[in-house]
Structure formats: structure tokens, C-alpha cells
């Protein structure tokens, strides 16, 4: 393999070529373990219907995690996800009213566009103002929240999902496979293509490893930062649009429960939170793992308290199994 180390095995082994390293293998192993454990509890856990439903629910998280992963690969983090999800949903549903006859067609692109705008602003702040992404995206999250509170309270906008949103998010058209899953697959293939086959993708890993080195090598690092943040914003908003379709409605706080699972999914997939290392297959594993874990705990009627404790412990234990960081020694 030449070029950037994407975290895969260094030899030309089959596993390495598909990006299966230790952490990805463990994550997939845990998925099987959870399914086996669930099957002991009730055989319904292995039914195709249940699994497809989990994948449908997981698709929303998967789309958000795709964007979050691009930002985490840079060594940054996007904390504006919660309200960008809500913003995407609210702008898309409101566009139906604003756009007149064309509104029904414009609504989904408009929602995604609004998310991309917020993401671009995040990128500009991180790239040109050189502010830590953690704090700048936090500020943008607060601004997006303020805008949405004003929007819902002041203008009484439409908040019903359109037929198209409902169609993409809920219905199944091909072989009973949920449409949302196809959307996630398209997003995922796009991310894999960008990360593996384009100069931009290599630049993402390079910036994540050492931005100054990438800059000295002639990479326009600011462009890479802005591009990834814009993508993250667009994907969060897109997931918001789909979530609005799923629940037929855009409402406040709909994105709150997606920030931590998205970051956890990316990290459980073996992506280094400090950037520069990770591959998309791991993110898929992480998303499925988190979705299954949440689903099984709720099926077992575990109270919220126990769910939180198990959730936290699983993340810690899995990361400890993946291997600990290097010691402070040069």
C-alpha cells in the first residue's frame, strides 16, 4: 500500500485492503455477540424483520456519523450537530410553505443547504480564526438553537413532513429494504470514495496527522477544514430532514440524542479521536453496535438509569480492549 496509512494493516492482505483492523474486527465481533445474547433472550432478535428495522433506525445515526467522522479524522469535533439536525428538519418543513408550488421539491435540498451553511461557518471559524473547534461549534450550536427558537415561536412555520420525506425515511420500495438504508449506503459509498480515491481524502488524513506538515507539503489545509465541516453540517441537516419524515414532524430538541451516539459510534469504529486514523467500515460497525445496544436494552425493559450505565461502561471497556494510547515517552 502506498500513501497515507488509513489505519489498515500494512501488508497487502485481504483484510487490510478492506480496512479491517483490530478494532473493526472487535466491533463486528461484539455485534455478533450482542445478537447471540439477544437470541438467547428471544429468537425474534434474529428475524430479518427486526434486523432490517434496526438498520433503518441506524441509518439516521449512520448519516450523522458519516459527517462527524470526516471532522474527527481532522482531529476536530463538531458539537453543533444537535441543533443542526433540528435546523435541517425545520428549514425543510418550513420551505414547503415558503416555496409555494416549488416548495415541495425544494424542501429537502434547502434543509441540507442550510446545514451546509452552518457547517461552512464552523469551518471558517476553525480554519481562519484558528479557534478550537470544540468551542466554536459549541457557539454555533447555541446560535442555531437561538435561530430555531425564534423561527418556531415567531413565524409559526409549517412543521409537517412532506410525502417525499416520509417516503425516504419510512417506506420500503425494493425487496422490502428500507429506503433510509439506501440513502445511508449512498452517503457511505461517497465517503469511502472521497477518503480512498481522491486527493481531498488523502489531505484529510494528512491534516489529521499533522496540519503543519500538510500545509508545508502544499495542501490547502483551510479548504480541507471547511470542506469537512460543511459536509458534517450537511449530513446532520440531512439526517434531520429524514428524522422529520420518520416522525412526520419537525420539533425542537429532536437532535439532542444524536450527538453523543454519533461520536461514540465513530470512536468505537476505531477512528482516532485525535484524528489522522480510521476508516469508514469501522464507523458502520460502530453505528450498528450502538443501535443494537440501545435497541436490546430497551427491549429488555432496562430502565433509563441502567441503560446509561451500561452504555458508558461498554464504551470504556471496548476502547480498553482496542488497545491503549502510547505512553508519554519519546
Amino acid at each position: 500500500m502506498t500513501g497515507v496509512d488509513t489505519g489498515a494493516a500494512r501488508g497487502p492482505s485481504l483484510a487490510g485492503r478492506f480496512g479491517i483492523d483490530r478494532s473493526v474486527a472487535i466491533a463486528f465481533g461484539c455485534i455478533l455477540l450482542i445478537l447471540a445474547g439477544g437470541a438467547l433472550y428471544s429468537p425474534a432478535f434474529l428475524s430479518p424483520e427486526y434486523l432490517l428495522q434496526q438498520l433503518q433506525v441506524g441509518a439516521f445515526l449512520g448519516i450523522i456519523a458519516s459527517g462527524a467522522m470526516m471532522v474527527i479524522l481532522l482531529g476536530h469535533i463538531d458539537l453543533s450537530i444537535p441543533w443542526v439536525v433540528t435546523l435541517g428538519a425545520m428549514m425543510a418543513t418550513a420551505m414547503v410553505g415558503w416555496g409555494g408550488a416549488a416548495g415541495v421539491w425544494l424542501c429537502i435540498p434547502f434543509g441540507v443547504f442550510c446545514g451546509a451553511v452552518v457547517g461552512t461557518l464552523n469551518g471558517l471559524g476553525v480554519a481562519y480564526l484558528r479557534l478550537p473547534s470544540m468551542i466554536f461549534t459549541l457557539g454555533m450550536n447555541a446560535v442555531a438553537q437561538g435561530l430555531m427558537v425564534l423561527h418556531t415561536g415567531g413565524f409559526a412555520p409549517l412543521d409537517q413532513a412532506t410525502k417525499a420525506m416520509h417516503f425516504i425515511a419510512v417506506q420500503r420500495s425494493l425487496f422490502g429494504i428500507p429506503n433510509a438504508l439506501f440513502v445511508w449506503a449512498i452517503v457511505g459509498l461517497f465517503v469511502i470514495y472521497v477518503l480512498r480515491r481522491t486527493a481531498f481524502g488523502r489531505a484529510v488524513y494528512a491534516v489529521g496527522n499533522r496540519e503543519s506538515a500538510a500545509y508545508l507539503s502544499g495542501v490547502n489545509t483551510n479548504r480541507v477544514l471547511i470542506g469537512c465541516f460543511a459536509f458534517s453540517g450537511a449530513m446532520a441537516a440531512f439526517a434531520g430532514v429524514l428524522l422529520a419524515g420518520y416522525s412526520n414532524k419537525a420539533y425542537q430538541n429532536m437532535g439532542d440524542s444524536y450527538l453523543l451516539p454519533a461520536i461514540a459510534a465513530v470512536v468505537l469504529g476505531g477512528t482516532n479521536i485525535l484524528g489522522g486514523r480510521g476508516n469508514y467500515l469501522g464507523t458502520i460497525a460502530g453505528v450498528i453496535l450502538i443501535t443494537l445496544l440501545q435497541s436490546i436494552l430497551s427491549v429488555m425493559q432496562m430502565p433509563e438509569a441502567g441503560r446509561q450505565v451500561i452504555y458508558g461502561c461498554v464504551i470504556i471497556v471496548m476502547l480498553l480492549i482496542y488497545g491503549r494510547g502510547a505512553k508519554a515517552r519519546s
Partner: peptide, 23 residues
């Protein structure tokens, strides 16, 4: 001792502490 990143460690332990509060 676990040598995990603080940000992700405290994200996870935060969930545990919140779960205990809820309990």
C-alpha cells in the same frame, strides 16, 4: 492508567454518572 483520550473517557463516564443519578 487506561491511557484513553480524556474527551471520550469522560463522555462515557458522564453517561455512567448520569445513570447513577437517575437511579
Amino acid at each position: 492508567w487506561g491511557r484513553l483520550q480524556p474527551i471520550i473517557t469522560t463522555l462515557a463516564t458522564g453517561a455512567v454518572y448520569y445513570g447513577i443519578s437517575l437511579f
